[in-house]
């Protein structure tokens, strides 16, 4: 893996490039539009800084690409620039995974219904604690899945791995953004 500093540099570089591209296309926008543009470009930049090697980055790009239709699609293409074809091609591949996910979900429903029957059958004392713990873990895993972009398609092991990577990247993103924010705040203060 690369050191975090290079990740930060890459992120900053891509972010700046994306913002430059974006700002050349649109001149006047409200603060919310600006915020959305900055957020989206930061997300896309951190995702493309990962170079499409991880699931979450691909899912992030795909989400930005297909969230609100044409406008955002345009934006992501602009931010990504020449790399957009390659990275969005990967999005098509991840789109295929949603079908699998549906199948998986139906399987899970089946399993859950079976599991309820089984817990009713077993003796309540011993099985209860472990099933409660399992349920807690499963619940939290589901929440984590919803937090990590593209986490719905992952199994447990990859989910944890991607969480690791995502946390590292988010940290880099937050650091860069915070430093830029404080710098620009100081600059525009007087």
């Amino acid at each position: 893996m690369r050191p975090p500093s290079s990740l930060r540099q890459e992120f900053l570089k891509k972010w700046m490039m994306g913002l430059q591209r974006y700002s050349t296309s649109k001149k006047n926008m409200s603060i919310l539009e600006r915020k959305k543009a900055i957020k989206l470009s930061a997300d896309v930049a951190i995702a493309s800084a990962r170079n499409g090697t991880t699931c979450w980055s691909r899912a992030l790009i795909a989400n930005g690409y297909s969230k609100d239709g044409g406008d955002d699609k345009h934006l992501v293409e602009q931010i990504l620039g020449p790399e957009s074809e390659r990275l969005i091609m990967k999005k098509v591949l991840t789109g295929g995974a949603s079908v699998c996910n549906k199948r998986m979900r139906s399987k899970k429903i089946l399993k859950r219904s079976c599991g309820i029957q089984r817990t009713r059958k077993f003796a309540p004392q011993v099985a209860l604690a472990s099933s409660i713990a399992k349920r807690l873990v499963r619940k939290r895993t589901q929440i984590l899945r919803s937090l990590i972009p593209g986490g719905e398609f992952m199994n447990d092991v990859t989910l944890i791995e991607e969480t690791l990577d995502y946390i590292i990247s988010l940290r880099a993103q937050v650091d860069v953004m915070r430093s830029l924010a404080s710098a620009s705040e100081l600059a525009s203060e007087p």
């Binding site: 700046m16 913002l19 430059q20 974006y22 700002s23 649109k26 926008m29 603060i31 919310l32 539009e33 600006r34 915020k35 543009a37 900055i38 957020k39 930061a42 997300d43 937090l147 946390i167 988010l170 940290r171 993103q173 937050v174 953004m177 915070r178 830029l180 924010a181 620009s184 705040e185 600059a187 525009s188």
Partner: peptide
């Protein structure tokens, strides 16, 4: 972390009048 990203992007948008935030 995600909230921080939101907040920071909001802050940047508020501070900078243009999207390439100067």
């Amino acid at each position: 972390l995600q909230r921080q990203v939101e907040f920071l992007s909001m802050k940047l948008a508020a501070v900078n009048p243009r999207p390439d935030f100067n």
